[in-house]
Write a protein that binds this DNA or RNA. Structure first.
Lengths: 342, 342
DNA sequence: TACGAACTTGTTAGACCTAACAGAAGCTCT
DNA sequence: AGAGCTTCTGTTAGGTCTAACAAGTTCGTA
């Protein structure tokens, strides 16, 4: 049906095929400006017949508009960022904006590279995870000439706008709930990632609050690599062997928490009586476990939505405020593994 | 430090700042062509000082080269596609090519839209999940003027190249293993997704092979939405209540399989003696379960790598063959939930 | 000294599209 | 009839960069 030429089609081909100027074809294809119904029909028919696909490269250069939003996140390998992404996509779906994602693997140098790469496409906005960046990255963001939204975390100085939760506060809140429930011998299990600032801040908020109550972390262990679920299991076993009198385990993410939970259930240990557990993130996965792990929802979807909405508003020029910070409040879910204080 | 002008910088700004022509600046910035060391230094210094970020839009238009690879997948919401993606990224990381991903949500119309969108950026290659597409999508792929690799599935007629496994064969292989192990009353649990062709093909291969051995699926149930782990649990419970004499459950994916496994362990049922279980995909998650679910690895990472490699080869023009199909062979992992035949 | 090669830089002409304006044709209203 | 609209289409001039070629410079050598 469609002809099999190798030369890519241009507006000119469509204009010749339909006997009007390139400009008119452009107007039809973008639904912009007045074109008579008859002409519109003819042009559309020709474009479809030829299989013409507009060249956005040229369009973007000419119009100085690239309806792309750069979304820069550390990883796709756990459920947290895909969920943020889906919040973003949903909001952008109703607009002319389109997300393009880049992954940094939690490496600042890679973030710098990805950011540079992205900015060289002159996007209409940037959504970037975290509030800690290299000085070069911050300079690029400042110079970008488009709205920038830093997400996930609000503990720090954003370049422009910011949507997230306070991880320090989240750590604090969890510590308070644990203390109120009467637990005293507390172990911490987390990832060995000095560059995961959010995990670090939660840990800081957590330990600081315990310290104020005169409690010190009784044991801690960090892992890297491998299946999080398996690691949670192994680390829990190891830690309880080492420090058998622990009465609470706080995991830096739900996945390792789930591993620990499964291990303890298997061992027939009384949860949350003899030992309490909590994770972080509120991943959907937890719904299917034999018992629901206590966790704290990080508002991931909403973060994505709000961040995207900021860009949409500012794109439309609607007196949208520059530099606003939106702090969301994570909710604590006691699940079945954390005693209630009362 | 950097000046805070709103007007975006161009080559001209750098050329004026360093006193050479735009062309020379371009050469320095792309590391192409001979430029004296002295000039190179001066230009680089100026570019850095101004904070210049090249405009790829213009570059791509002028050079007729866009080093982007469109990667089109149905979803980011389970572990399978991120793993394919990471295979792709790893291979492309060593080249000038860069992946850009689009998500279709298993919707053919959305696939068409995403594909159109992607092609309008004139990518250097397309990697697209699945081998079933609308006629319009197939036409676009044929016309794309760049290499196309369809991935995950080889049961069908690819437009160009193809890397994947045969899901029919995978279903058959699993059925054979189950029959060999002596199971006879078999239940199937899957997703309610008429558009997930790969799951459908596995199911077909599975039932057909059972039929040849004179066995019919004793019960089946399909779900949609919700936490897969929880669904697996619920469906397993419901099915065993309805059809208590089942001696095997085949799940269309590992996540619901894991849910079923946890449920059965909880009930203290003898696995794989009284009842056997198997899933599909070989997700890393399974490593952390109390028992390892039988599964079949779908070679996801390797599929991503091979697909990317094809594009790289063809991009380099290396007498790379057009239209090749690479069929990988999934391996059956008996885990702890499927008796061995011998 | 003149010639060619090697190296370095500049000039010109696009790549394909859109913004802005210009012009033609038809209409309404006084 | 002519002014003033509206509706439709075309023309021109970019947007920013790169390919291809042209031209200058330096150097070694016959």
């Amino acid at each position: 049906m469609t002809n099999r030429t190798r030369r890519p089609l241009t507006l000119r081909d469509v204009s010749e095929a339909s006997g009007v100027s390139e400009m008119t074809v452009s107007r039809v294809l973008r639904n912009k400006g007045d074109v008579s119904e008859a002409t519109r029909q003819r042009v559309q028919e020709a474009a479809k017949r030829l299989g013409y696909v507009p060249n956005k490269i040229a369009g973007a250069l000419a119009s100085q508009r690239v309806n792309l939003v750069a979304v820069i996140i550390p990883s796709l390998g756990n459920m947290v960022f895909p969920e943020v992404l889906s919040g973003i996509s949903d909001v952008l779906a109703g607009t002319s904006l389109q997300p393009v994602v880049g992954v940094t693997d939690y490496l600042p140098e890679k973030e710098e590279k990805v950011l540079f790469e992205m900015l060289s496409w002159r996007p209409s906005g940037v959504i970037i995870a975290g509030i800690e960046h290299t000085e070069a990255s911050r300079a690029m963001l400042r110079q970008a000439g488009c709205p920038v939204v830093e997400i996930m975390d609000v503990d720090g100085e954003p370049v422009d706008s910011c949507v997230g939760i306070s991880h320090r506060r989240a750590g604090r809140k969890m510590a308070e709930a644990i203390i109120d429930a009467g637990y005293r011998r507390i172990g911490f299990l987390g990832t060995k990632m000095p560059l995961d600032h959010r995990a670090r801040k939660r840990f800081e908020g957590f330990t600081r609050t315990l310290a104020k109550a005169g409690i010190e972390i009784a044991d801690q262990e960090f892992y890297s690599g491998g299946s999080a679920l398996a690691k949670g299991r192994e680390m829990t076993e190891a830690m309880l062997k080492r420090t058998p009198d622990l009465d609470f385990l706080y995991y830096s993410n739900d996945m390792i928490g789930a591993g620990g939970l499964l291990y303890l259930i298997e061992k027939g240990i009384d949860i949350p009586g003899k030992i309490g557990l909590a994770g972080f993130n509120g991943v959907e996965l937890l719904d299917g476990l034999p018992r629901r792990l206590a966790t704290m929802d990080a508002c991931r979807r909403e973060i994505g939505e709000r961040a995207a909405q900021i860009l949409v508003d500012r794109h439309q020029g609607a007196g949208a405020t520059e530099g606003q910070t939106i702090e969301l409040t994570p909710t604590l879910d006691y699940g079945d593994t954390l005693r209630r204080s009362s």
